[in-house]
Design a protein around this nucleic acid. Structure first.
Lengths: 308, 308
DNA sequence: CTGAAAGCGCTTACAG
DNA sequence: CTGAAAGCGCTTACAG
């Protein structure tokens, strides 16, 4: 039976009569026969599957990234195994190696803070790897990033053009790549405008509510008239806190989000484009899978300011 | 080499000296050897992989669902292949069969409007399938649903208790399962309160902006003092439109979303719990994979009203 | 208990 | 051109 099926499926030309072919096709359908993909994998080495290792698939930025990657993959006949590292380097490593054991044809990952050196053997043996949102550490992977620093400069310029000079910054944990870049953009944005950088206006921490409350109060009493929040969670918490302030504080947020346009007072944001990032990452990966051996690529996508 | 590795990895007891074992372990590491999962699949028939077929992984509700499913799967050592059907029955079918060809140990799907009868052979041959958010058509799959109708009754009760009797309803396409359930809840909620159902206050359509504008105007001129929006996209569009109305319109929305608490005026919502739905679906699937042959299950999760 | 050999289901190189 | 046979890399049933 299975041999016949294979014959029919592979060469739909002569040799077998039309009637027989139809009979077999019907048998395939009624018996629910599906070729065993794993057997083909064993023979050909190709899985038509890629791995995607994100921080957390439940978060909007990451899921939009994943949606774009899946779309490109689907267009090319690939499926995507998605795993969340929850920002834990050990889980990242375990999951990445599980994906490699499944012989994915390529891997897109949002690296955690740890080193990705453990993936070197995989790359050397021909599995292409693309890092997205942050660069990989100790691994010569292709990379797709947002221009975090340029975005933060836009935010600073925008506020300065509105007359602000005391601009606070509420960033994320300072050990994250994006934090470093955004803080650098903030500082150079100020310096470019001839405004001194004041350390008492800069805070970098995980977006926990209590710490944030303190930081915001410190900003205000240091005389800040505006604040930039450096990531979505901080933005959400800050939105609540800012409303309760006696004096209004102009707020610009890094990262757009659904409904940002509906807030009152309106919120100006720096928007990354997760769909474009995902598409770029997936397309880079796909061309590597097809055999592109060109030099390592670093794709940096501009961010834009949406003034409100 | 590989044989030795297998020997070491499978039985880490006697027979091989500690020194040799360490040498081999080091060799594994330096050569980057990873057992080929597909070969094992071919032999054992188990992939330790499940399939997840959602409408669109980029949408918040679906990605939270996916996050919970992935978490349960990861706990049990399973990976998840995620595919988006984009509400297209043909893509659903193609993707589902691609997953079956990869011999996933089980499948969770958010069914599209089409029939899922094509999956019967898979179920019969032992692949468990769980439908989530909507029931599968023509397929005896386990099912995990929100109690849409109960949620809509909560919304109606809430508005009636505030004195509203002219309550409009802006639903989604009427052919969706959730639309049918929510509309039924709206109607029976009104009837339970002794309020007649007025067809001129009921609209069901895809959440396209222009159509919605007309519907909302029609509601208002029919005398509605409150409106319930039946899905997130309609809610977002309606939020903008309602602000522009001359007379205030009390608004209750089906489905919670990030930042709903920050809106002005505040928005009362009926909240589903996608994480719990995902967890229930994944746990049901996992127990089926483990061999649970009990009767078909239908799990219905309550929704709750968050008054603001 | 140990170790060689069979076999999972495909694909493809090869003999006829 | 056709068709039987080898082989991908594991796991496990089986012989020694």
């Amino acid at each position: 039976m299975k041999v016949m099926v294979m014959i029919i499926m592979n060469k739909n030309q002569a040799g077998v009569s039309r009637a027989t072919e139809q009979r077999v096709q019907r048998a395939i359908k009624s018996l629910g026969f599906r070729p065993n993909h794993s057997a083909g994998v064993l023979r050909t080495g190709m899985t038509s599957t890629i791995g995607l290792l994100v921080q957390d698939i439940a978060e909007p930025f990451q899921s939009e990234l994943a949606g774009a990657i899946e779309e490109v993959a689907a267009d090319r006949g690939f499926l995507v195994i998605i795993v969340s590292s929850h920002s834990d380097p050990n889980r990242e490593k375990e999951s990445a190696l599980a994906l490699c054991s499944r012989r994915v044809d390529g891997l897109v990952l949002v690296p955690t803070v740890g080193s990705q050196a453990y993936l070197k053997p995989e790359m050397d043996s021909g599995t292409p790897i693309v890092a997205v949102d942050r660069p990989a550490q100790d691994l010569a992977a292709d990379t797709v990033l947002s221009d975090n620093s340029q975005g933060m400069k836009l935010a600073v310029d925008h506020l300065v053009s509105q007359g602000h000079t005391m601009i606070g910054y509420l960033g994320d944990r300072p050990d994250l790549y994006t934090s470093v870049e955004r803080l650098a953009g903030y500082k150079s944005g100020l310096l470019d405008c001839g405004i001194p950088v004041r350390p008492d206006l800069i805070f970098g921490q995980s977006p926990a509510e209590e710490a944030l409350t303190q930081s915001l109060e410190a900003l205000v009493s240091a005389g800040a008239t505006a604040v930039i929040t450096g990531n979505t969670w901080t933005t959400f918490s800050a939105l609540l806190l800012i409303r309760r302030l006696a004096r209004p504080l102009k707020h610009v947020a890094f990262d757009d989000f659904k409904l940002s346009s509906l807030l009152d007072p309106p919120l100006t944001v720096i928007a990354q484009d997760p769909r474009s990032m995902g598409r770029a990452a997936a397309e880079t990966l796909m061309s590597r899978i097809k055999g592109d051996l060109g030099p390592r690529q670093k794709i940096i996508l501009e961010t834009r300011l949406i003034a409100r």
